[in-house]
Amino acid sequence: MSAPDDGAPPPQRRLSIGGDWHRVSPKLLGVEIASGIVGTLVLCAVTVPFIVLGTWFGWPAFGLAVLIGVVTLALAPRRVRAIGYQLRADDLVFRRGIMFHRVVSVPYGRMQLIDINRGPVARALGLAELKFVTAAASTGVSIPGLVEAEANALRDELVALAESRRVGL
């Protein structure tokens, strides 16, 4: 999945935006693993009725669910490391994803709303998620795995920045 650079004609295959990326807390791994396990269990549970009914694809489906779960869990550390953000002079840049890499830049003045969300596992680990809302529904930027104090500070900083750079819609 991560094609190693073999010096093929396209010089830079992997998309990478430079700069000093802030990583999120490694404790996010706990949240990822917990949600991965829950997801796998749900997937497996879906296949159980088919096994009970004795359909031919019952066990293969179960195996597939377990495989998906294992791969998801195995990739969790890399997924967490891939999440990053930069506070640049005029905008916030956010990246995530290994296989489907995505980088979004949101100018400070465009932020309409900043949410802090905490799920049960994240709360136990002292983490919070910062979610940004702009007038465009497709922006969809949320930074998970911030230490709570850091999340609050970042939220206040960004609200102040958004306030000072407020522009029209």
Binding site: M1, A3, A8, P9, P10, P11, Q12, R13, R14, L15, I17, G97, M99, F100, H101, R102, V103, V104, S105, V106, P107, R110, T134, A135, A136, A137, S138, T139, V141, L169
Partner: peptide
């Protein structure tokens, strides 16, 4: 412009391509 996006999936990575998106109101 509300925000900007650049993204790359596995196929585009192999081909050395990216996807560019400009987010505006819907």
């Amino acid at each position: 412009v509300q925000s900007l996006r650049i993204s790359q999936g596995p196929v585009r990575r192999v081909l050395g391509l990216v996807e560019l998106g400009v987010h505006t109101v819907s």
